[in-house]
Amino acid sequence: MFGDKAFELVKELQRTSETLPPFDDDGVRQVLEEIKAIFEENCQQAAAYSHSGDRTLWPLLSFRHAAIQRNKRCLLAYLYQRLQRIKAIRWEFGPIVPNDIKNSFCEPETQWFNSYSKSLATYMRSIGDGQGIDLTGDLKPPKSLFVEVRCLEDYGKFELEDGEVILLKKNSQHYLPRSQVESLIRLGILQHIS
């Protein structure tokens, strides 16, 4: 049936919730080919109609037209949903994305991610009276300036804003400025303990 391949694309994306599956190059190409094939057949029949004025093929024509639109909708929805996920990834992971996620991007998506990341950074620098505000930080109102954290993996050296360098080793505990370690907690490298 027409449109089934396009639907598979959307269904497959929906099945792998949240993170991003690799871009389905082959699937997208097949749908584009199907659209092209239907379009060409419809063009032929439309041309035949303008010669003969024979209306008997109208239902078929309209069915095929609906199929083209259906395919188009599924394709666009597929791309759009992926963009939404990539956007979420930028907010959750920050500008540096783990390699295995990055490998799931297709070329235009990588470009889009880079320019989105850039725009976001430029915007965050421009607000806050020339100082810039990190909009991805302080998602919950801070109650204290320092937090107690435990390290969940061997991260290595970490330099604080005052120049002090600390070594983040697995299972070590530290008392650090909240604003500087929040992103590490969000990335699951440190655990906030009270």
Binding site: E18, T19, A88, I89, E92, F93, P98, D100, I101, L139, K140, K143, V147, R178, E182, I185, R186, L187, G188, Q191, H192, S194
Partner: peptide
Amino acid sequence: NSKIRPSELVQEHSKKRKRF
């Protein structure tokens, strides 16, 4: 609610990585 929690996307990703 005052604790900072790891982001849900990150959690899911690390789970997936562990599985792999």
